[in-house]
Amino acid sequence: MDPWTFWLGGSLALGGGLLTVTRKNAVASVLWLIVAFLGMSTLFLGMDAGFIGVLQILVYAGAIMILFLFVIMLLNLTPSGLLRMDRPRGTTLGLASAAAFIALIVAIVTGGQQWTGGQGGGSEAAILERTGEASMLEGSVLDIADQLFNAHLLPFEAASVLLLVAIVGAVALTKRKL
């Protein structure tokens, strides 16, 4: 857990996220969201979760975001129309909700020794001591594949069916005449 990957990735993800939800233009939001995803990917790589990190870039930043861009293009929304439509509302409510949630999580996390540094906690040394060899997670494709195709084969297959259903559903929803 290199501190600098955390601070770099964290600020990219958080900053990108903040800009995503505040931009008036949806295209700008998409681009900032890609920045946020890159930051997330950095964080994953910093936690030795290489597979997830790459997946983040390929699937999220690559595939899903391109889909968003296509849709925005398809919708053909003019900037003025967007401005008129997307006047943020309930900012105070939104802030209060988010703050309440964050405060709750922070209170839980920092309330005990479990996740923070110290004996039996969440520091590098403590994790290493507790999990031993297992902590040297390479996040290698081999380990994940072992998990996916042995222990979680059924959910894996179910996910593939889900994706198929989603494809069919998306086509059925957007087609003018079936």
Partner: peptide, 20 residues
């Protein structure tokens, strides 16, 4: 929809706080 989301969130917050 945003009102539903807010209500659901407050419900979740209340439950978690109650457990805490």
């Amino acid at each position: 929809l945003h009102r539903y989301v807010t209500l659901a969130l407050f419900g979740a917050v209340v439950i978690i706080a109650a457990v805490l």
